[in-house]
Design a protein around this nucleic acid. Structure first.
Lengths: 183, 183
DNA sequence: CAATATATTTGCGGTGCCTCCCATTTTATG
DNA sequence: CATAAAATGGGAGGCACCGCAAATATATTG
């Protein structure tokens, strides 16, 4: 979409907060009214992208063989669905913008919350539950936390190489720590 | 503070979004300008509270005997510092408001991020590191996730009884799951 | 007590995000 | 070509928030 491209470019050039909706609209020669018809908010230009992966992610979790642990199911789903779809350039721009803007972080975390609920629900479904129990929720929270750390680490290395490596490392570290935590 | 009381009351009565700063200011007979002198933003009326616990939390983590695991140190610090200071009424009002408002959730998560960094830094310091390594960050993420789940569970039970019980349960569940995850 | 220095508070204008409504243009359809 | 449907634009307005300069209260002196 043209609006998205122009917006991301302006954000990269002059920062997210410093870019007004009016500027973005002018760049694509539309009115601000039309802008808000396509994106519910300025922040959504950056973030609405991510939600697209949720259905596949859910499906991958549900379809994962029930013999394995919940955590493994989530890890596998992320590697199968999210990792291949991750675009370094877009991730970098979005990552920078999110890091620099409070309100963007707000929306980003809002999205994470949706993921949390989606993952927890998928885990529940995988085990034949109506709604997520404590185990599902905690697993989802931990998995998401580890995943976020992997993305952060990826970013701190300049978004080079694949995210897959970072995801692998983060989950491996979690499993290693788990041995310490288990009672 | 009077402003805070009036604001929380209005939020509870008519919702967070539906309450304007002007109303709050009028209630305490000050101007909106003065309101923003005391609180950097409308959302901060609800959230600025929590940050007060951070220094003690950090101290408790650092002081915890190094023989125990990082996770235990965080768990103990939360139970020692946060749990006794938790006010059910305030938690309930704040919880409701946060659940109902996107922008409040934004600020709330922003706060969580500060906690994450604070806890990770404290864990690093406890082990004599300059800055947090992957282990510290992942532990902090997991611990915060579990803690948030405990607070959520507390809320879903009407903020009755102590949070302590919920915190205990959530961490116990994590340790149980850890046995499954360990490789 | 009076005069002066110092905070604190206030009003006001302005910006930016975002919403609602209605008129107008464009596009698709028969 | 006419008619319906969809996309667009403009304008008014609300709210959070900022910056500034005036006004008010408070404290400190002579």
């Amino acid at each position: 979409m043209m609006i998205e491209d122009a917006a991301l470019r302006l954000f990269a050039e002059q920062g997210y907060e410093a870019t007004t909706v009016e500027q973005i609209a002018a760049e694509v020669e539309i009115s601000t009214t039309t802008f808000f018809r396509y994106f519910p908010s300025k922040a959504d230009v950056i973030l609405c992208h991510q939600d697209a992966n949720m259905p596949q992610l859910r499906a991958a979790i549900i379809a994962y063989p029930p013999g394995e642990s919940d955590l493994t199911a989530v890890e596998h789903a992320i590697k199968q669905v999210w990792v291949p779809n991750a675009d370094p350039l877009h991730s970098q721009r979005a990552g920078q913008a999110v890091a620099a803007s409070v309100s963007l972080r707000g929306l980003y975390n809002e999205m994470s919350r949706n993921w949390l609920e989606g993952i927890a629900a998928a885990l529940a479904e995988r085990r034949g539950l109506r709604e997520p129990d404590e185990t599902a929720i905690i697993t989802a929270r931990v998995a998401l936390g580890v995943f976020n750390e992997a993305v952060r680490a990826w970013g701190s290395k300049g978004y080079k190489a694949g995210v897959g490596t970072e995801v692998d490392r983060a989950f491996a570290r979690l499993r290693q720590l788990s041995a310490e935590w288990a009672n």
